[in-house]
């Protein structure tokens, strides 16, 4: 593991892996979209509006996954002071925020025709909105300090405290029986829908995941290079 912990070595590996992630993402999105529109059947109750599920559910899963990744990276950064962990957490935040925003927006676009409203203060929707605020708070806090290490530390603590929201999101549909339906995927005995419906959702979810890794690599490379730029600038000022 420590072979990859070295930022210089990581930069080389990331640059090499990046085109593969790009290719994989494009292929998976192509396949997933084809399945979502052409092989998946309309729902017997919700008709063609069910196709929103194929972006809504992966976006929601990945919004939560990214937050978990950010919290774990923040913990590693706080405990072991790992130089890459902070960078990885910071690079994850905007991607996770984008996914969370998309799950809320597509959920709204699905709720309007199905529930008759864009928004309700349902437990699932509300806890997901809090997740978006946590991401925004994390990003804002990072830039709120003149001292970068203090900003990193404060935002890492926020990421950890906010992680309590993840199980709340997950179980909100079971604990508070309001409007949002319970999970049709994570069920005992398998998903409560035919394979031609859940397979496209899983393919789209994997596409979202490789997209995340792709953007993560790009953003980590940017952050590490920016660190080097900062050191060189200091050198120019102090060392002549």
């Amino acid at each position: 593991m420590h072979r990859f912990a070295n930022p210089t070595r990581f930069l080389k590996i990331a640059a090499a892996v990046q085109p593969w992630m790009a290719g994989l993402t494009i292929i998976l999105f192509g396949t997933g979209l084809y399945m979502a529109f052409f092989t998946a059947p309309p729902d017997y109750q919700q008709g063609e509006s069910i196709r929103i599920m194929y972006v809504h559910v992966p976006a929601a899963w990945m919004g939560m996954f990214c937050y978990a990744a950010m919290a774990v990276a923040s913990a590693v950064a706080l405990i072991w002071k790992h130089p890459l962990a902070d960078v990885a957490a910071k690079a994850t935040a905007p991607v996770g925020a984008a996914f969370t925003f998309l799950s809320l927006a597509t959920g709204s676009l699905w709720g309007k025709p199905m529930w008759g409203t864009w928004w309700v203060w349902d437990a699932r929707l509300t806890s997901m909105l809090i997740l978006l605020f946590l991401y925004i708070g994390y990003m804002a806090l990072q830039g709120a300090f003149d001292d970068r290490t203090r900003g990193a530390k404060a935002s890492a603590v926020l990421a950890l405290v906010g992680a309590v929201n993840l199980p709340i999101i997950k179980f909100s549909v079971d604990w508070w029986n309001t409007l949002h339906q319970t999970s049709s995927f994570m069920k005992q005995g398998g998903p409560s829908m035919p394979p031609e419906m859940w397979i496209p959702a899983v393919v789209m979810a994997v596409a979202f995941k490789t997209y995340y890794v792709w953007v993560l690599l790009v953003r980590i490379r940017q952050e590490l290079t920016a660190n080097k730029v900062r050191i060189l600038r200091l050198k120019q000022v102090h060392g002549g």
Binding site: E48, S49, R51, I52, V55, H56, A59, P94, V95, A98, F101, L102, A105, T106, L109, W110, K112, P113, Y211, W214, V215, V218
Partner: peptide
Amino acid sequence: YVWTSYGLTAVVLVVLL
């Protein structure tokens, strides 16, 4: 609803990338 969902997703993901 369907096309706005997919369009918005595409725009957000492409812009971030």
